[in-house]
Design a protein around this nucleic acid. Sequence first.
DNA 1: ATACCTATCGAACGTTCGTTCAGTTTATAA
DNA 2: TTATAAACTGAACGAACGTTCGATAGGTAT
Lengths: 234, 234
Amino acid sequence: MATALQRRPGPVNKPSAASPSAALRAGKPAANPSPPLRASKLDHILACATRVFCEKGYEGASIRDIARRSRVSLAGLYYYVASKEELLYLIQKHSFTTLRARAEEQLVSAPGNPEARLRLFIGNHLSFFLQHPEAMKVLSHESESLTAPYAQEVTELKRSYYRLCRNLLEELKREKGLKALNTRLAVLSLFGMMNWIYTWYNPKVDPEADALAAQMARLFFEGVLAAANGRGRK
Amino acid sequence: MATALQRRPGPVNKPSAASPSAALRAGKPAANPSPPLRASKLDHILACATRVFCEKGYEGASIRDIARRSRVSLAGLYYYVASKEELLYLIQKHSFTTLRARAEEQLVSAPGNPEARLRLFIGNHLSFFLQHPEAMKVLSHESESLTAPYAQEVTELKRSYYRLCRNLLEELKREKGLKALNTRLAVLSLFGMMNWIYTWYNPKVDPEADALAAQMARLFFEGVLAAANGRGRK
DNA sequence: ATACCTATCGAACGTTCGTTCAGTTTATAA
DNA sequence: TTATAAACTGAACGAACGTTCGATAGGTAT
């Protein structure tokens, strides 16, 4: 999971120690502390950091907030992570990777019909969104908070995910002969609909993921299919 | 323009001085400095603050950044504004107020047809968005950054703007008998499409405001009109 | 001249920030 | 038991933060 990027930037002045996260993920949890934490403490820290970033924003959150929330000492955090920025990077990378992996997983075992495949994509995006609201808010809201070396890799992931969706729409365009369809604009509008959800979704009022996906998909498809041909109304 | 809220919160320990911004806006620019700034220095400061908040985010931006950008000394800023938060508040309030005012202005002198009126609303939102991209990004991105007393007033503005749009859609629903239409979901999806633009819009690649509005409106209407009746496809 | 506002600023206040370091404890291996 | 490395921490570092204060000009009114 850790690429060359993981240890390149940042100070990390003790080159003797191998990547601690790698050491942790390997079988040996080593020490004494309470059983619940042993398995993978980095994951625990990342989960806490996600919630803190979600609540206060990346810049507004302090490392001390995260240390308090995860019940690790301030200095202890730096045993697992090189910097505050790396925390955000790991969160975004992990979220995007699993989001895209799920989408691809659903698509390989799916019908060839472009419209059905797009529906799957939308359903996957929204169900993931509502299953991990904090992570998705951090993904949506802090997309500009990473700098030089970290930002590139996440941007790459984002682009490939966007491309996946746009390719599906372009298949649909070909199949249905929608000459006038601006696929870039349509896909970005679709992402706008979906990613904006974190600003308004209220589980007490709004439908669950499946129904939400169905409604948004219907709105999107009827719009795309009807509007992209002649301008005539229904 | 300044309501009771303007001077209530924050320290402002010199009760003798009247609201400086009010004093400024009144006819007397008073002093010596270069002609271009005299007219309304607060507006100049707000414009600079908007750009800084847009570039670095509210939490990531420092008062010193804004002072440097507006060529006012650090302490000088506090002659015009009580706090950093008031800067954001004034920006958001001003943007929302003029956005809503424009929309209402367009709607009073418009045809009674609900669909045409909604098209006007969308066109107004997008043209304002692309005319003031920095301000709209600050509006979209920093909607959670204000706290107790300030946040309420801006939330109120936002709600009334949202209500304006939703009422238009409910008129359409009634007119066309769209029994199955969830207007809350539809309106929030529309705002999602529109407000997400700040994350991707590129003037070199993407259409201008009018064309953009036309395309998004078409996508939205065809989707709403076709999808809200029976589930049948075209 | 005197008094009084408006507008402005340099310098500092106290606090919080991300990060570091020297040191301690704990678990494993010899 | 002793040596070694992993896991962890209290205390501090320097820098940056939002904000305040005392002082200083210039303009206007008396």
